[in-house]
Design a protein around this nucleic acid. Structure first.
Lengths: 202, 202
DNA sequence: CCCTCTCTTGAACGATCACTCAAGTAGGCT
DNA sequence: AGCCTACTTGAGTGATCGTTCAAGAGAGGG
């Protein structure tokens, strides 16, 4: 096996292990030694791939898992019920199932990092903001299927994302999916109300 | 001044400094040395008051600032517009103002801790869950002013809290209050819709 | 075959981590 | 006055933090 291939594998394993650990215990609570052990390599190898040190690795984790989670949610919405309002509600149910199945660990991959770095590390804060921004672009496009008006759709998308993020916080803390299911019902009511008022204005 | 009084002062300053630092940079990212320096004492004094070490201090921070923030929100809602739906919306505007005024640091005092400890420290996880639970009790009571049905009020309260928590995450990451304002508009639409459908069922 | 380049390895750096402890200080009480 | 208790102080514990580096391993191209 070529060194380049071996290296790419190691690099991917490091990013994957870091993403998994960050999601469970945050960035500050995860040491490079633990990341190295979890990915079956040594700390020195991490520095071979990430000359910028832990910060560079963390930024790559944010962007990589941010893109992956955005694609995951987009897929769930696309494969869900045909009615976009019902699809939004079903997505919260799916999120609840996945969260419980993972022992209440696999929620938003970057929320913990975002809160940790928001006031302490400007480059990482920007990275998390950009990921959230990209999610909002995709969600807004989907919400255009509920309400045609761009501004209203963006408001709905923002509300949906806040409810998902907040419900992840509450559900992980409580170790039950009540908050996620309540948020899902709220999303359906909110989206339906916006669709109705929008239709009434046509 | 009596030793007991001096001690109580020191203890309060330690809890206050820890709460402030935790809110900005999380629990794992805050060292006891920094807490001691910020509160004008020494690490040894922290251990005099908190024999259980950092965990004991953290639990007190969670319960203390959890209760304080619950009272703060309750006060804002009570002093807000008479219409409870408008009061909920206004509270999000107030949260946005406060967040921006603090340099996007003072959001939820326990959200970062909750995410950090949810999968790593069971006693602290329970503490955060209990704080969220108490907030939900108060919020549900307030939402009874919107919808009389207990279950619907609790759903609304849960949705409101998830939107506040999620909007704090997005707004701190983006360093702007767009998400909080959008969430506030969403809360008004959601609460209004629930009030209308509930009234129609009477 | 040997050189090169990529990647791995293991040891070491100073700093900081949570934590401990013995000695010192000072007000309250008898 | 003298003791007691509460609190402070500063030094020190081993462990782990992020980071660095020199040396080794191993496949590809000449």
């Amino acid at each position: 096996m070529s060194p380049a291939r071996r290296g790419q594998d190691t690099r991917d394993r490091v990013v994957g292990a870091a993403a998994s650990l960050y999601r469970r215990q945050g960035c500050a609570g995860t040491g490079l030694a633990q990341i190295a052990q979890e990915s079956g390599t040594r700390v020195g190898s991490i520095y071979h791939f990430f000359g910028g040190g832990k910060d560079a690795l963390t930024e790559e984790v944010v962007r990589t898992s941010g893109a992956a989670y955005g694609a995951l949610v987009a897929g769930i919405l696309a494969e869900g019920p045909e009615d976009p309002v019902e699809a939004l509600g079903a997505a919260f149910g799916r999120a609840a199932d996945d969260l419980a199945a993972s022992g209440y660990a696999d929620a938003c991959p970057i929320a913990t990092i975002a809160l940790e770095v928001a006031s302490t590390h400007e480059p990482l804060r920007r990275a998390t903001a950009e990921v959230f921004g990209e999610w909002l672009v995709g969600l807004t496009a989907f919400c255009r299927g509920v309400v045609d008006d761009e501004a209203v759709a963006r408001d709905l998308a923002t509300a949906v994302l806040t409810m998902l993020e907040g419900a992840f916080v509450l559900s992980r803390a409580a170790r039950d999916t009540t908050a996620l299911h309540a948020a899902g019902r709220g999303v359906v009511v909110l989206a339906s109300a916006l669709r109705d008022t929008h239709a009434a204005q046509d």
